[in-house]
Write a protein that binds this DNA or RNA. Structure first.
Lengths: 127, 127
DNA sequence: CTAATCTTTCCTGTAGCTGGAGAGTCAAGG
DNA sequence: CCTTGACTCTCCAGCTACAGGAAAGATTAG
């Protein structure tokens, strides 16, 4: 399986697959004589695993940890849970910040008449 | 006023003030004979304006637009409002995505016992 | 006068890719 | 056999919004 098919199967751009190999996250098992990367089923599964974890907002480093736990049959679910719980906490913190921001900005937007005249509570607030 | 005092007055790191000058966002009015940037009150006001806009999550390019509207005494508040409203829409979209993500991840975390055993719904979901 | 603090420019690195150049490889069609 | 088009390779640059650090000059306090 060449990189193109592997990328399609995993749902990732070819560039990204190559990038993951460069940083040692998911490397192709071997190369052809002419230097083409060959991917097997296991590698494709790992790529797809990473894609889903990335969709969940896990960082590359978190993905690396999750991947090694994924590979480790004697892992404890507590280890995985700890990573996910920490990530969940980050997301919730981000949510709180975003909510505060939104509320304040929404106030400004509704306060601004948005007409031809120059007076604008939004700029006033920023000044 | 040297860059250090200006940065303190505006609540920004010196590095950031220099960066804003480099990208032509807020430039120091002039330089001393020995090359030191001199900032005046107006420049400091602009720096503080940008800092607050950045706190609101506006991008540098949005700040550039807001700044030119801020400077333009014949601006219409509608122009400002349009930028803010667009940004608000982005924030709300981000909020929706984050909420969906959080809910799904929270489900997984609660589903995982987090003990010494290897079976883990989180990894199962990612695999 | 000296030591400490500021300031300058320039270069590098961050996260996570994406785009492009230029060159080589492969499979199919004529 | 040749060509064409699709695929792949490596390397380099750029994106956001700065942060860190080196080496050198400027300024200020004691």
């Amino acid at each position: 399986m060449n990189i193109g098919s592997a990328a399609r199967a995993a749902g990732l751009p070819v560039k990204t697959v190559r990038y993951y190999a460069d940083i040692g996250l998911v490397e192709a098992p071997d190369r052809t004589q002419t230097g083409y990367r060959r991917y097997d089923e296991a590698a494709v599964r790992k790529l797809a695993f990473v894609r889903r974890a990335r969709d969940f907002g896990f960082s590359i480093e978190e993905c690396r940890e999750l991947l090694s736990l994924y590979e480790d049959k004697s892992r404890s679910s507590a280890d995985v849970r700890a990573i996910a719980a920490a990530h969940l906490e980050e997301i919730e913190e981000k949510q709180r910040q975003l909510a505060a921001l939104r509320d304040e900005l929404a106030l400004l937007v509704t306060a601004c008449r948005g007409d031809d005249r120059p007076d604008c509570p939004i700029l006033d607030r920023l000044a």
